[in-house]
Design a protein around this nucleic acid. Structure first.
Lengths: 349, 349
DNA sequence: TTGTTGGCTAATGGCCGACAA
DNA sequence: TTGTCGGCCATTAGCCAACAA
């Protein structure tokens, strides 16, 4: 299950689809072959955040961004915690080639698979020890194999695999007054094993050949409170790898945990160039792009343009914009004070 | 709980003691200030084993061993799985200084703490849902606070912290016919939370001030079968760090999971020098040193002396000995075919 | 349509001493 | 001395439909 090779293989396609469904709509992950900019500054900050260490890195002369080609992407999930992990292998690109978007490799055609899926955020009733899981009607009709409606209490067993290939069995019944679809008998095991709590989401996929998959998308913890596992995959001296790779034009590897901290230190070439061409100025109004990894769009205005770390990373675009968010019915307290140009777009309203 | 600063602090001393008790008697871990040899080859092999990837590393010109000073040691435990992790920060030593053992820093005097401890491997009864935990009599007498024997059914509540500072409560009772010490009421929670199974060991410590600690030493899985969490802390291109640190004499960091794979790529200076001075030859009989991380000693004889990877790591002492183990009442099938000189000592029997 | 609740029953959690290795 | 077992409660897991939002 660990290596995804041929994307045309239905098994692999299902795995990838499930991984992305569990990761949520938020993170944009480049594919193998794509050109991206790597921001060591952002990478370091992620490592610091996840390891709670302040790192005074050696004085590498890394530029603030490095054009790289994505050589390989490996999507994984921790067998214990189901935490998602993307491993990106990057190859720095020669400087002189840095201004040709035409060198973009053709994205391998992603074959179309018939794929049905839904996800539902768990309610207190769903997670409570008391009952089962209530399946919204349209989801049951769209994604579940059809029930034998000739029975007066239709039921069937659903057998689905998770990202690790483990099998989970659920009784799918249609009963109650009024009628509703329920997952019982096995649901509890799933909740306990996956340690689901209110706010986490249940993810369900049905691929071709009636293959069923289940997964979990955990609630975003407001701001990385200490539940986070310590096993950060990146060592504190992570920049040494980048430096080595940069100077010798060799491969290096970075990790990305989509449900952990917002990552924007890998930026697709096109998106970056777009943001470079955008003329942002103080006072400009904007709205957040999906790269900010928010569930909804927010608007605000730019209040400053300056290096976020002028000493170590001069002239870096990374989080170079100080912003003020508009007040909103939902709280904007969790929104960052600094964003990168590629995380926003001008608000033409 | 994450940073251990002053080893004289009783809190810290208890933490360290508990960590080592959970790690088991097997691994030797150097302390801060010590000189060690670092074997990139062994490091790489551990990474390969734990990530199930074969890595074709860039062609660094790393020597097969690098003298380093241990700058910092940080002992941690994963909050989810309790997996132990030692993070070693190493500083490569200048070449010209490589032949002076006198440069060994004085090991900081490890203050003596009164410390009582025991561990017990769990039986089926201990882990079964049916009952509690049976405490061997001498351990209860040695390590538990004394019971009030005037009661005809003496009992007390033990409150103990684990490596993360979480509190666990147990009812310690003396009852049954014949009398025995039992841990009930709370024991089950502990077993479930820590996911203990038969063969795992319960670790108990009592420090000064009657401070109690509990921990877990998991059974060694025969040969890294796939239960292992994927989140290896070392990225595949881990050698880039070492190379960078080696050429520029800067710090680098390695990780060591004592319950995962046998590590011998960090070897204390003295032990290595000893093994260099040992004249081993084909046919020589030996017995295993504790560095082989075995529960007991085994004997065998040397059948070959050769580079284990003559192409990439010429003249490396790492696992340069091919050995044949003596037959034994216990199986020798799990013993490695290759060992390093510092893992064995001549058998003078 | 779907979240929550109280009720009911079956299952199991969990403590006990007997017994035996 | 200590591991395992059968017995025996008390607790809870888990399904159900009523009800309400």
């Amino acid at each position: 299950m660990k290596f995804q090779n041929n994307p045309r293989d239905p098994e692999t396609a299902l795995y990838t689809a499930l991984w992305h469904a569990c990761a949520g709509p938020l993170p944009t992950l480049p594919g193998a072959g794509q050109l991206v900019f790597y921001f060591p500054q952002g990478h370091l900050q992620q490592v610091e955040a996840s390891s709670n260490q302040v790192i005074d890195p050696p004085r590498f002369n890394l530029p603030s961004n490095i054009l790289c080609r994505v050589i390989h992407v490996q999507l994984r999930a921790d067998p214990d915690t189901d935490e998602l992990l993307a491993q990106l292998t990057l190859l720095p690109q020669p400087i002189q080639a840095q201004n040709g978007a035409e060198m973009e490799l053709p994205t391998p055609p992603s074959p179309e698979f018939r794929l049905l899926s839904f996800s539902k955020t768990l309610t207190p009733s769903d997670t409570s020890i008391h009952g089962g899981f209530s399946v919204p009607k349209r989801h049951a009709h769209q994604c579940f194999p059809p029930l034998d409606m000739s029975m007066q209490n239709p039921k069937q067993e659903l057998v689905a695999k998770d990202l690790h290939g483990n099998e989970w069995r659920f009784q799918h019944v249609l009963k109650g007054q009024p009628r509703r679809h329920l997952l019982i008998g096995g649901w509890r095991d799933f909740v306990v094993s996956k340690r689901l709590v209110v706010g986490d989401a249940f993810v369900f996929l049905r691929g071709e050949n009636e293959e069923l998959r289940v997964g979990v998308r955990r609630a975003m913890r407001p701001n990385g409170n200490a539940t986070s596992s310590e096993s950060s995959s990146d060592p504190p001296d992570v920049l040494a790898n980048a430096w080595e790779a940069y100077t010798r034009t060799t491969l290096f590897t970075i990790y990305y945990k989509p449900r952990r901290c917002p990552t924007d230190f890998i930026v697709p070439f096109d998106r970056f160039m777009e943001s470079v061409n955008m003329n942002y100025s103080i006072g400009m109004r904007f709205e957040s792009k999906e790269a900010l990894e928010l569930e909804q769009k927010f608007t605000g205005s730019i209040v400053g343009i300056e290096d976020s770390d002028p000493i170590r990373w001069m002239d870096s675009k990374w989080r170079c914009l100080k912003v003020k968010w508009d007040q909103n019915e939902t709280s904007t307290a969790h929104l960052p004070e600094r964003v990168s140009p590629w995380q926003i777009e001008p608000d033409y309203m």
